[in-house]
Design a protein around this nucleic acid. Sequence first.
DNA 1: CTGAAAGCGCTAACAT
DNA 2: ATGTTAGCGCTTTCAG
Lengths: 330, 330
Amino acid sequence: MNNTRMTDIAKTAGVSLATVGRALHGGYISDEKKKRIDEAIAELGYIPNMAASGLKSSHSRLIGNLMRFNPNQLYAKIALGIERNLMNSGYSMLALTMYNKDEERAMIDELISRRVDGIILTSMTIVSRAEIEKIRDMGISVVMVERAMDIPYTDSILIDDFGGAYKAVKSLYETGRKRIGFIGEQVKFGNVENDRYRGYEKAVAEDLGCTPSSLVSFTKGYDIEDGYMAAEKLFKISPVPDALFCTSDILAAGAMQYLYKRKIRIPEDVSIIGYDDTISSFLSPKISSVSIDIDRIGSEAAQMIISRLSDSKIPSRKIYTDTILRNRFS
Amino acid sequence: MNNTRMTDIAKTAGVSLATVGRALHGGYISDEKKKRIDEAIAELGYIPNMAASGLKSSHSRLIGNLMRFNPNQLYAKIALGIERNLMNSGYSMLALTMYNKDEERAMIDELISRRVDGIILTSMTIVSRAEIEKIRDMGISVVMVERAMDIPYTDSILIDDFGGAYKAVKSLYETGRKRIGFIGEQVKFGNVENDRYRGYEKAVAEDLGCTPSSLVSFTKGYDIEDGYMAAEKLFKISPVPDALFCTSDILAAGAMQYLYKRKIRIPEDVSIIGYDDTISSFLSPKISSVSIDIDRIGSEAAQMIISRLSDSKIPSRKIYTDTILRNRFS
DNA sequence: CTGAAAGCGCTAACAT
DNA sequence: ATGTTAGCGCTTTCAG
């Protein structure tokens, strides 16, 4: 290994270890010694050892980011923003992806063993409130993304999925569509799909006074085939829908594969709106999509955790991020 | 903070620090003391401090993964596989994404300051052979992915892009297509596009004896609009192509948006093959795509770096991974 | 303004 | 089979 250490540069500069420390982190130091130290650093090529400084200071300048796997790489995209923002503040991100809820505990332990200063938890998990409080009480700041849990001294970022779905469906009515179908995963209590369905339901109810169940097609999963089959089902009824609201771009893409086969044209015959804005601009034609504000979520998560690092007694904060309807007129 | 340390569990178990170390890492220990130590660990909830063990042993069990940003999240997908494989061997991955070549050096320094045991470098970079040798000589193992550079005691994984493109274009001829267009980014020496173009060129040359330049459309970038414009250009000539080979799925998607507008049907009028298999199965219709073997690359990269960790004097290894033509008959 | 020295939590050599 | 002890490279208190 043979890396340059602070003592090495102290020796070449002819000063003490403590003085090198002051040159590095600020403190009383004469211009002359500062210059000699800078020269020695340039000559020997010193790169600090964070393992040592972390051990001594009990600050690793490492933030853990524990995400649930998402087939659209949605959380990976948020992670990119988090990484960027953390880096600008001198922190690094250690990202861990769970494929399975059972992995969560071991991964949290892994992060603790790295002595991360904070943990960002993205999307639903099994870890209980008590466990999160234990982590927090170890001095590790916790920020949760897309996961509602009221825990003192712990922040969360939520996404306004209800409003996103509502806005999307409303916009379809405004452009003259009348029979708007819904394609989305089966609604369970507390999941994201639930909010998206309720947004759809409210918009439809405002226009029609009720939700015609013939226009709603719940899917078993969120694969492309689920979207295809859901569209197939909706286009067997009569009259057929003149618009589709899908709770993910993947489901929308599946629906579009069905429409392509049937030579039903978009947007002439049917309008489509997707969700998450992952692949919507790559489809033929580009479709509108409800976009979660990835950049904002990333930067808020990073900022929240950094601010909590310097003051762990800030009361819990909860941010709702608006969704954006990316209108592509189809 | 107040975390449980080895000395704490030594105290509760009534043994010495060294004995706890033996219980943890193996070594001569009596069943009775082992049992007392296990109980103390369970009671106090000990989680090792990697910063301390890393400082002492100079092994962080951390691997850096420095990737160039890829709009298709291609490297992020490879990273997922690397993370998984490393984790199974007791390592963690610290991933850093470069948006800009100039960031590379600072990021490498960041990894060095974390005292990573190894670094995986993915895709083209500006770091020179000499710099990589310096990293290696610091005791950090280096594995390069999709980046050719012959450096002693350093491994690389390359992707057979020439063969992938060749196979794809050949398959189009085999299904009776005669006028196969090429859409890809401008070829520069040493880039991936270059191999893909040469694969196309060879297949065409074998069939026609030459490459009609009217069928080749180089793009300035790899955005969806680049694909659209390239297709527009190719479909102005006469006779029009009956197939398109695109060097990325995004370019293919752009071309398809043009075809959709013109109501040119796939595969009846034109066949399309994309590359990287990122979004090809989401398009309407699903198209064939040349897939790089993401899983294999991830696991090979992880295995290579782990094996080199235990023996840094293994001669350089170079693996070529085959591409797979995902045939979707369109 | 500068230096000496203690100690973070762990590993491992050495002694018993 | 077990305990004692010396650092890893750094931060930081305390003296000067």
